[in-house]
C-alpha cells in the first residue's frame, strides 16, 4: 500500500515541523477515529524520544460513553497527558447558552470552550484530524491554518503554502490549526487502521442499539435528546462512520464488525461520510465556512 506510506510520511513530517516551530502544541482529541489515528502517527513520529504534545478534549457533555472510556484507556496505555475543557461549565457559568429543543446540539458552542482552552493554557498550535475530503470549506484550508486572536479563519487571504515547507510564524495572540491528515480520505484512514492495527472505540463497528428515526437518520436514544410520543424506538444493527456528539452524529445500518468489513462497506457506500452521519452540516451551504470563521476547529 504505497499510498499509505506517502500519506504517513507527509503526516509525520508535519508533526515534526510542529514540534520545533511551536512552544506549546496540543492534539485536539475527541476519541474519534481521525484523532486516534493522529495519536498513533505522533507516537510513531517521535519514537523513541516520546511525543512532545499533550491531548486536549473539548468535552461537550453529550459524548458517547464508549468514546470517553476509550479516551481514558488510550491516555493510560500510552502514558499521555490529557486536558479536558468542558462546554457544560461554560453553560453553567452562563457564558454560552444551550440551544435547547428536541435535539439540543452543542456543536457550535465548542468554539468558545476551545478558544478559552487555548488562551488559558497558552496553546500556540492545535493539531486536528480534519480532512479535506469531508467538506467544501475544509477542502480549501491550508495544512498550517492561521487563526486570528478570536480563533477566526480568514479564508480569503491565506498564506501561500509551498511544497512541504511550513511557515508557523505568528503574532502574539494568534494561533495555528494544523491538519496533518488533510489529504487522507475516509478509506485511507480505515486502510491505515487495518495496516497498523490501531484500536478504535467499539462504536465504529456494528452493534445493536436503540434508535429513533429523525429526518431520515438514525439517532441513538440517549438522555440528551427529548423523545416524545411521535418517536418510534427501534432496535437496529448499526455502526458510526463519524463520532461527534450523541445529538449530532447519526448511526448507519451496518453489519461490519471488522476493519475489513468496514472497508468493504465504504467502498460500496453511495452516500458521503458527513452527508450520511452529520445532522449539523446541512444547515446551510456555507455551514462549515461560517463556523470556521468564528473559531470552529
Amino acid at each position: 500500500m504505497n499510498h499509505l506510506n506517502t500519506l504517513e510520511r507527509e503526516a509525520i513530517h508535519i508533526f515534526r515541523e510542529v514540534a520545533w516551530q511551536f512552544t506549546k502544541p496540543v492534539i485536539l482529541f475527541s476519541g474519534g477515529k481521525d484523532s486516534t489515528v493522529l495519536v498513533h502517527l505522533a507516537r510513531k513520529a517521535f519514537y523513541p524520544i516520546g511525543m512532545p504534545f499533550s491531548l486536549l478534549h473539548i468535552d461537550t457533555g453529550h459524548n458517547f460513553p464508549e468514546a470517553l472510556s476509550f479516551r481514558d484507556k488510550l491516555v493510560k496505555q500510552f502514558n499521555l497527558k490529557l486536558t479536558i475543557n468542558s462546554v457544560q461549565e461554560a453553560i453553567t457559568a452562563g457564558t454560552v447558552v444551550d440551544v435547547g429543543g428536541k435535539i439540543p446540539s452543542r456543536n457550535v458552542l465548542q468554539s468558545h470552550t476551545l478558544m478559552k482552552a487555548i488562551l488559558t493554557n497558552g496553546f500556540d498550535a492545535c493539531i486536528g484530524g480534519g480532512r479535506r475530503d469531508e467538506e467544501k470549506a475544509r477542502a480549501k484550508e491550508r495544512i498550517f491554518s492561521i487563526r486570528d486572536k478570536n480563533g477566526g479563519w480568514q479564508p480569503y487571504n491565506q498564506r501561500p503554502e509551498l511544497w512541504n515547507i511550513y511557515n508557523g510564524m505568528i503574532h502574539e495572540g494568534e494561533n495555528v490549526r494544523v491538519f496533518p491528515i488533510s489529504n487522507w480520505s475516509e478509506l485511507d484512514v480505515w486502510q491505515y487502521v487495518l495496516r497498523e492495527d490501531i484500536e478504535l472505540p467499539s462504536l465504529y463497528y456494528a452493534h445493536e442499539r436503540q434508535c429513533i428515526r429523525y429526518n431520515g437518520k438514525l439517532l441513538a436514544v440517549s438522555e440528551y435528546i427529548n423523545i416524545d410520543d411521535t418517536d418510534k424506538i427501534i432496535t437496529a444493527n448499526v455502526r458510526y462512520r463519524t463520532v461527534g456528539d450523541m445529538t449530532c452524529t447519526a448511526a448507519i445500518e451496518s453489519t461490519a464488525k471488522t476493519n475489513e468489513g468496514v472497508i468493504e462497506e465504504i467502498i460500496n457506500a453511495t452516500v458521503s461520510e458527513r452527508g450520511q452521519t452529520r445532522l449539523d452540516d446541512n444547515i446551510s451551504d456555507a455551514g462549515m465556512e461560517d463556523r470556521k470563521m468564528k473559531g470552529y476547529f
Binding site: R132, D133, K136, A137, A139, K140, P155, Y156, Q158, S182, N183, S185, D285, A286, E289
Partner: peptide, 20 residues
C-alpha cells in the same frame, strides 16, 4: 469544487481546493 461562499456567488475559484 467551488467551496467558499463568495466563490460560489461569483462563480469563480479564488483559492486552492483539494479533491480526491
Amino acid at each position: 469544487t467551488d467551496g467558499l461562499r463568495s466563490e460560489r456567488e461569483q462563480g469563480i475559484t479564488i483559492d486552492v481546493a483539494y479533491k480526491y
